[in-house]
Design a protein around this nucleic acid. Structure first.
Lengths: 194, 194
DNA sequence: GTCTATACACAGATAGAC
DNA sequence: GTCTATCTGTGTATAGAC
């Protein structure tokens, strides 16, 4: 692994562990094994290194999402449930979602871009899957797909907050389980009224 | 206002605006108008000042919660909806929820205590209200009240994350609206099967 | 490309006078 | 209770040699 790659990998890890503001160049150097000179040779500074790490992490997360929600083999309703109930490391939190709470990230469009992009793509894919499920009569038409998509994303992101706040790793699963049960209820009501 | 109070008020504001790690003593002094000596006379240091500000903010939030969810005049189901759909300043985020993403807060039980306590009390009150609604036939029995409570809290907290990530202030309301509609669906299914 | 040395500002806290 | 002065560590970056 080149020093350049080692720097990005180290930044990705620290961004997840500490956040952006607390990711010190010093720590990046220690973890990556590179020297000060290397880092400032390959990158303009902390920010551009962080952006590269964020973009890389964005694609990792997206791949993971595609494996469940985007799976073309699965039916739309099943794909939504598979994604919603994926295993998640609750006490670690969402590496992208957590960053929007830092004012330096919030205020910087370049830093925020990979984060915004991930959530927007997720939102679009979810809407698509919800509409497919509706077409097939697996879900009712009384809820706007865009609103429902927001709730499902929020259930996961909010579950992380709840888990971290209480120190209870099960709280992401409890929230997504409740969402799953409400979806089933919504689905059965639909089939019952046909 | 005494210097002591001014310090706590300034800390509360900065904690909300910047977070704990980025709340510098220097900024607290500037905002409060107090001097260095004042601060270290009244408080052990940054951490104990932050704890006092957090405890104060916890009680503000709790009062706000009691006004809707805890309102004894309102029926249980209505109280839940009133709380869920309260106006929220999405692009500011939850002053308590945001802090659990900082590793220094996560790692410190004393700092985390007011945050944990708030979410646990909210969870308990929600369960109580959901059970009341169930007793009165306003909600079904197929979902565990504790799970449902987690989902509702997560909808709000996750809505904040989504709003901040996309820069779209409406995203808290979209998530809570979807939750409201699913609750109505769940409620009507219940009354339909009685 | 990588290294070491250096710079400067700020975080967080202490000292001691008033 | 409040003030100013001072201190040590670290974040972030530049300089310039190899």
């Amino acid at each position: 692994m080149s020093h350049r790659e080692a720097l990005v990998a180290a930044a990705e890890g620290l961004l997840w562990e500490r956040g952006y503001e607390a990711m010190s160049p010093q720590a990046v150097l220690r973890v990556s094994g590179a020297g000060q000179g290397s880092m400032y040779h390959h990158f303009d500074g902390k920010k551009s290194l962080a952006i590269e790490a964020l973009v890389r992490h964005e694609s990792v997360l997206w791949e993971r999402t595609m494996a469940t929600l985007g799976n073309p083999e699965a039916g739309a309703f099943d794909a939504i449930l598979a994604w919603l109930n994926s295993d998640r490391d609750a006490l670690v939190g969402c590496r992208l979602g957590r960053l929007v709470n830092e004012s330096s990230v919030r205020a910087d469009g370049e830093l925020r871009a990979p984060i915004t992009r991930y959530f927007e793509r997720l939102h679009e894919l979810l809407i698509e899957r919800i509409e497919q499920a509706t077409e097939r009569g697996e879900l009712g038409r009384s809820i706007d797909p865009s609103l429902l998509a927001d709730l499902l994303i929020a259930a996961i992101q909010g579950g992380y907050v709840l888990a971290l706040a209480t120190g209870d790793a099960t709280r992401v699963a409890t929230a997504t389980t409740a969402a799953t049960q409400l979806l089933h209820c919504y689905a059965s009501q639909q089939s019952g009224t046909r």
